[in-house]
Deep mutational scan, measured.
Amino acid sequence: KRLCLVCGDIASGYHYGVASCEACKAFFKRTIQGNIEYSCPATNECEITKRRRKSCQACRFMKCLKVGMLKEGVRLD
């Protein structure tokens, strides 16, 4: 089984260019469509796991980008 490159949960397929789970796919889409900017309360190096993926949105979004999710893949309509 493929794992989500962002949080390590089971991937539902390839989304925005990267093997990812439904939760991270939806999080990435919401962030881009809403043009949301997050800031990390710590040092921008929070560990993102299935259990902790909700704890820091800034680091989760940075990890989405780091593993290769493409903003261009999100439709803005």
Rank of each mutant, 00 (worst) to 15 (best):
M62V: 12
I32C: 01
N35F: 06
E37T: 01
R51V: 12
R52W: 11
R60V: 10
K25E: 15
I32E: 08
C56K: 01
N44A: 10
V18L: 03
A26H: 14
N44D: 14
V18W: 02
E47L: 10
C56F: 00
A11G: 12
T49H: 04
A26D: 13
E37K: 03
C64A: 06
N44I: 13
A58E: 07
S55C: 15
S39A: 15
K1D: 10
C46P: 01
K29N: 08
K29C: 06
A19Y: 07
G13P: 05
C40E: 02
E22C: 12
A26P: 03
N44F: 13
F61W: 14
A58L: 04
I32A: 07
G34R: 11
K54P: 15
K71H: 09
Y14L: 13
K1I: 04
A11T: 06
E72L: 05
L65P: 01
A26V: 14
L70R: 12
A58D: 06
D9H: 05
F28Q: 01
S20Y: 09
C56N: 01
D77M: 05
I48Q: 15
K1Y: 12
V6G: 01
G73E: 14
S55P: 15
Q33T: 08
Y16R: 04
L76I: 11
F27A: 03
I10V: 15
K54A: 12
T49I: 06
C7K: 00
S20R: 05
A19K: 09
N44V: 10
V74N: 11
C64K: 01
S39F: 15
A42L: 10
L70H: 08
C7Y: 00
C59A: 02
K29G: 14
L65N: 01
C40L: 01
G34S: 12
Y38H: 08
C4D: 00
I36V: 12
H15M: 06
L76P: 10
L70N: 13
N35P: 12
V6E: 03
G68Y: 07
F27I: 04
T49V: 09
I32K: 06
L70I: 13
T31F: 00
R2N: 13
K50C: 04
P41K: 11
I10W: 13
L76N: 13
E45F: 06
I10R: 11
K29S: 13
K54N: 14
D9G: 08
Y38L: 05
C59S: 00
E37Q: 05
C21T: 01
C46D: 01
G34H: 06
M62L: 09
V74L: 12
C21E: 01
N44M: 12
P41M: 08
C21R: 01
I32T: 07
T49N: 12
I10M: 10
K54G: 14
K71I: 11
Y38R: 05
G73K: 12
K25N: 15
F61I: 10
L5I: 06
R53C: 10
Y14K: 13
S39N: 15
M69L: 04
R60E: 01
K63D: 01
C64E: 03
R51S: 09
K25D: 15
C24A: 00
I10P: 13
N44C: 04
L5T: 11
I48P: 07
S20T: 15
C4Y: 04
L70C: 10
L5A: 08
E47N: 10
K66F: 03
A42F: 07
E45G: 12
L65K: 04
G68K: 04
L5K: 09
F61S: 04
C24V: 00
K63I: 04
A23D: 13
L70V: 14
G68A: 01
T31E: 02
A58P: 03
